[in-house]
């Protein structure tokens, strides 16, 4: 499987940290920066879609621009023994110059055109 390197710069680059207690919504911010001179389409995917609310969960980033994404972990009963195994993936693709519609970009995307980055979730508890 051929893989392109992710063009976007992710901040944080690999871990999304959520601070407990998890009795209320906990938000982690993820910044995506497009350092290239081409427009990029992105999509956020997760292994636990029911546990998170992600805004925006897809979109377009202009050359040199950045997007701030809010990843909201929904309240749940935290078990101290639970280590999050949740993961996120940011999937991106360059927008061809002859395409204006984002849905078409994804529909026509070839696997070798896709770039992705994976992030893992880290649950942090306040010290007891």
């Amino acid at each position: 499987m051929s893989k392109l390197d992710q063009i976007l710069i992710l901040d944080p680059p690999s871990d999304l940290r959520f601070k407990g207690p998890f009795t209320d919504v906990v938000t982690a911010n993820l910044k995506l920066k497009n350092p290239s001179d081409r427009r990029v389409c992105f999509k956020v995917k997760t292994t636990a879609p029911r546990r998170y609310c992600v805004r925006p969960n897809s979109g377009v980033i202009d050359p040199g621009a950045a997007v701030n994404i809010s990843v909201m972990l929904q309240p749940f009963d935290y078990d101290p023994n639970e280590k999050s195994k949740h993961k996120f993936m940011v999937q991106t693709i360059f927008i061809p110059s002859n395409v204006s519609d984002n849905d078409t970009v994804w529909k026509d995307a070839k696997p070798e055109d896709l770039m992705d980055s994976k992030l893992r979730c880290v649950f942090e508890l306040p010290s007891e």
Partner: peptide, 14 residues
Amino acid sequence: ALSEDEFHDAVSES
């Protein structure tokens, strides 16, 4: 390595 099948589109509404 995780297989991509484990990933689903994130939702924007809770």
